[in-house]
């Protein structure tokens, strides 16, 4: 909990894959085989992180939009720290561009945002090794890779 929130936040790609399903984001970690569910207010916050944002600006915007109590604001801060601690987001404190104001689109009530973490499919998700991808050709020297393997 020592990380400052004076930082840019972005999804920790390529280690993390995230996909939106209606009102829920599923994040998959290719590093530890865990997966995560973000619902409700947590999903709304992740939408801003997907677009890269400043953590403090995000805090400020939510505090203002939902008129948060200090307890709720603390829960929000804890949530952002947890995303950082679980390596779900990349932080960037070195470059600190002009902090754009964030407009919160979320409606309804503020719910305490939670990172729901699951490890029950870890053994299945970790079976395939990670490999580098050449930016120009994709996987080494075969831009038109034939499919010769099933399974």
């Amino acid at each position: 909990m020592s990380t400052s929130l004076n930082t840019q936040l972005a999804p920790n790609k390529p280690d993390i894959v995230s996909e939106k399903f209606e009102d829920e984001y599923i994040l998959v970690s290719l590093v530890n085989g865990n997966y995560y569910s973000l619902r409700g207010t947590a999903a709304g916050l992740w939408t801003h992180i997907e677009g890269n944002c400043n953590a403090q600006a995000l805090m400020n915007a939510y505090v203002k939009h939902f008129d948060l109590t200090s307890e709720q604001a603390k829960a929000l801060e804890d949530f952002l720290h947890e995303l950082i601690d679980q390596n779900l987001v990349k932080t960037d404190t070195a470059k600190n561009p002009e902090v754009a104001a964030i407009e919160v689109q979320a409606g309804g009530e503020f719910e305490i945002p939670v990172v729901e973490a699951y490890s029950d499919m870890q053994d299945l998700l970790l079976l395939d090794p990670i490999h580098d991808v050449d930016e120009k050709t994709g996987w080494p020297a075969q831009p038109d890779a034939e499919e010769s393997k099933e399974g």
Binding site: P129, Q142, E146
Partner: peptide, 12 residues
């Protein structure tokens, strides 16, 4: 070479 799908985002 041809069963390495893990970093291809659309598969993930």
């Amino acid at each position: 070479l041809t069963n390495m799908t893990r970093s291809v985002e659309y598969d993930l």
